[in-house]
Design a protein around this nucleic acid. Structure first.
Lengths: 340, 340
DNA sequence: ACCAGCTAATGAAACGTTTCATACAACCTA
DNA sequence: TAGGTTGTATGAAACGTTTCATTAGCTGGT
């Protein structure tokens, strides 16, 4: 059987109507008399007609897809966000193109080019430092862009974010309160705004405290489980006298890897070293030692982002908004000596 | 600044050449004299021209995207597969549209409709039972479909899968060898082929064994961490005399939830109950008690699937293949009394 | 001086929709 | 009966590319 792809003209012919009428049946059925409508619908079914979206969007000017660019699709934090986006998008008959930038400017750039060529309705992006020009370019072409997990720099754009400064402060305040004096910030690359701000928040908490506290930083190239593990190996190898008594991790993947390496090296969490993660992904609670973590409203982030984007595309008097959610520290065993 | 979207004609005018020449610069630069080529490229840059993909694909007949339909994007197993697919796709200048079916026929169906309208190059799908008609329809429209994580029913289609029967057998053989006599299969919905076959493999192992063994089944509606937790609550509530001594889970999410609930209820893993999961996602090794699990070559699955799909779209004498990988049981503490 | 064989560039047709101005009835109203 | 109104269907233009047959301008060989 040959791949038969009938077009709207053939449907029209088969049903004995004009092309315009078929289009009307498809797009504004109420403009068509019931009897003709049925005839056309029967023809569509009979011929197995499927509308060609390229042609439709060529005419319409825009496609029916949303672009979502994330740093790391393997990170459950981002899949949760993606779910939120998808929920809203599907609800409005839109598809989502998920792109993975892997914290690589080149990749991000080529993804954005592709999305631009596709004339997507809009783009939701967790931008890497320095991708502002590309984003500006998209905007100039009439594609709205909403920043997520990153506060907008100006009021001229939409963003959804979570207060990372506060999150960092919450984590460190907790560690200070539980008596730690040598804390390590296990960081991702500092060009990520999230990382910077979580660190900044941590520093602020230290400065606000009356008790003295050493806050060191160990940087990893990519914040995932594997790098967390090797950081853990290095930390475990430190002499107990200089080793940190608590580690605040830039995300939960690092924290999980760290936890695994420390345990493997025979160190007790939280007795020897306490750990606080970030994101509170589902796996944090299921970890070897249930992980304290700064919770972010993940799906909510995605939903709100998608809603802002849709509003910007459809609402003529859209007003740019910078939405910020508050994080919440969830204390579990990994940082709670009492409980363990 | 108004959203200015120049088209190829304006570029041609600006550069003082014909439309066809601009198109040639874009698609077959070697056919164009260097001096003109440069002039056109300058014009493109100057005007900020971005090719309109709808128009391009309307002419070309097919889009430059691949569709990937997965059961649950929150499951790291699937994101790893997605990474593999993306890797190959991006390498060939294609974008990937990731769709989440959530094990819901309606959702799957509407995703497939959308992909069909988009005239994607091909679809990689982990199909739900009973979606064969829709898939057949896509094929009739000339869209190749490759099944993944599911053996093709006939030789008339491509598929990449992992031998689930073998995986189930490996898990149970291991539990039999370590002396268990009351084992529970903590299952996902049985309409999923994967679930069926893992169970079948487990049964086969029991039948092949000389020692008697009870193999019960507990079914969950969706195999995720949450349902795993509630299953764990139920299991923990059973009297020790009838309670299973080992649980084989249909995937790692169930296993992680289960582990968490059992630990919370004060039961020791593996002493009171041993656990074996499936997929060996990265978090399995990082769990409260490192999880034994049947490992699948996740990224490989995605890569191979994408490659088959591309071959089917581009190679005129493509031959359908049914690729099957072998799983491998990774034993960790959750099922190893010796080690703990 | 003529033709053959190149390389470059051109212009128009085609892809499959949607949209919009128009046409035709049929029905009402004055 | 003329003029408006409403409901339905039509046909052609337009969207922005790619493709392909054609032409134009050279070079070199006879």
């Amino acid at each position: 059987m040959k791949p038969s792809v009938p077009n709207i003209r053939q449907v029209a012919e088969y049903a004995g109507v004009s092309v315009g009428t078929v289009s009307n049946v498809l797009n504004r059925p109420d403009l068509v008399a019931p009897s003709t409508r049925e005839r056309v619908q029967a023809a569509i079914k009979e011929l197995n007609f499927v509308r060609n979206d390229s042609a439709r969007q060529l005419r319409a000017g825009r496609s029916r897809t949303l672009g979502l660019v994330v740093l790391d699709i393997s990170n459950p934090f981002f899949t949760d966000v993606a779910r939120g986006v998808e929920e809203i998008a599907n609800h409005n008959g839109l598809a989502v193109i998920v792109c993975n930038s892997d914290d690589d400017t080149e990749k991000e750039s080529s993804h954005l080019d592709l999305l631009n060529e596709m004339r997507v309705q809009g783009v939701l992006i967790n931008p890497i430092e320095g991708s502002d020009k590309k984003i500006e370019m998209l905007r100039e072409h009439g594609t709205p862009v909403v920043l997520f997990d990153r506060q907008a720099a100006s009021e001229g754009e939409c963003s959804v974010a979570v207060n990372d400064l506060l999150g960092g402060r919450q984590a460190l305040t907790h560690l200070i309160d539980t008596g730690h004096q040598r804390v390590l910030f296990l960081s991702g690359p500092f060009h990520l705004r999230q990382v910077q701000e979580r660190h900044e928040g941590a520093v602020a908490a230290v400065e606000a405290s009356s008790t003295p506290l050493d806050l060191d930083v160990m940087t990893t190239p990519t914040p995932n489980v594997t790098t967390g593990r090797s950081a853990g190996d290095r930390i475990a190898a430190m002499p107990p006298s200089t080793r940190p008594t608590a580690v605040f991790c830039a995300n939960d993947l690092l924290a999980l890897g760290l936890l695994q390496a420390l345990t493997h090296a025979g160190l007790q969490v939280p007795h020897d070293i306490a750990i606080v993660g970030y994101d509170d992904i589902d796996f944090a609670a299921a970890a070897a030692v249930p992980l304290s973590s700064v919770r972010q409203p993940r799906q909510q982030l995605g939903r709100t982002g998608a809603e802002l984007l849709l509003d910007e595309t459809t609402n003529p008097d859209h007003e740019h908004q910078q939405v910020t959610f508050e994080p919440e520290l969830i204390v579990r065993r990994s940082s709670d000596l009492q409980r363990s």
